[in-house]
Amino acid sequence: MDFGPFLLLALMEGLVTAAVLALTASGLSLAFGIMRVVNVAHGAFFMLGAVLAWFVSQWVPGPAALSFAAALVICPLIVGGIAALADTVVLKRLNYEPEATIVATIGLLYILEQAALSFFGPDARPVPAPLNFRIQLPWFGYSGYKLMVVVGAALVLLAVWLILRHTKAGLVMRATQIDRDTARAFGINVDRVYAGVFAMGAGLAAIAAVLIVPIQQAHYLMGGDPLLLSFIVVIIGGLGSLRGTLVAALLIGLSDGVISTFFAPTLAKIIATLVVALVLVFRPQGLFGTRAA
């Protein structure tokens, strides 16, 4: 293949990575932005979404598209429910102290991974794609499903943005983020907002996982990479800034695609980590973040 088409292929692969990463990282960013919780279990929520998608694909009869659609609804709901429970039972009791929540979410990460190991087992398991078609470009054919992933992720992100900007629930979340005492003085049940935001963040990771699992297979340790990459993205983009998260996810995803294709995946991770180090040194609030208030 010539250089041009090869680059196009690399960029398309990168776009898929970027789309899934943007979804996952926006969930992490949401929980941090509104609750100031650094959720180390975010990758485990991602993994849980994928593992549950496999179970759904086993239980729901009929065509793959049907069980996939079911997974897309059921998995984020279950994962979100678990997250809301973890928030109410654990994080709230720790008063959302930053250090304590980090330790607690590390614990949650191990609990979720061991639970997945017990119920799902140590093997990687494939989940069938809901549709199989190839888009034939002049130079190569490309998986239609992967393009669907990009479109799906973009739609979900658009929905998140619309919820935050144009609904009462979003207004309540933003007010809570700015000043939780004053929010309470105006009738906002901050506990419920936090549970909802934590569930929404985890649910976004689960949706990302359901979208990616037909490409990647489900495995109980698959949460590590998404967690690391999400942290990289939110640090570069600025913790809590949704716009920054999107831009950084595109940056990391596309460069990951290009560098992995032309050189090696490890080099892509090395460079991404290096960029994070540089951002932390020279612009600790991230590219789009505002300084911690």
Binding site: K168, L171, V172, A175, I178, T182, A183, F186, G187, I188
Partner: peptide, 18 residues
């Protein structure tokens, strides 16, 4: 203690929602 990043209309809306 206004919600400083929100608009005037949004601050008012939060009061109304109470």
């Amino acid at each position: 203690r206004l919600f400083g990043d929100l608009t005037v209309a949004e601050n008012i809306e939060i009061g109304l929602m109470t």
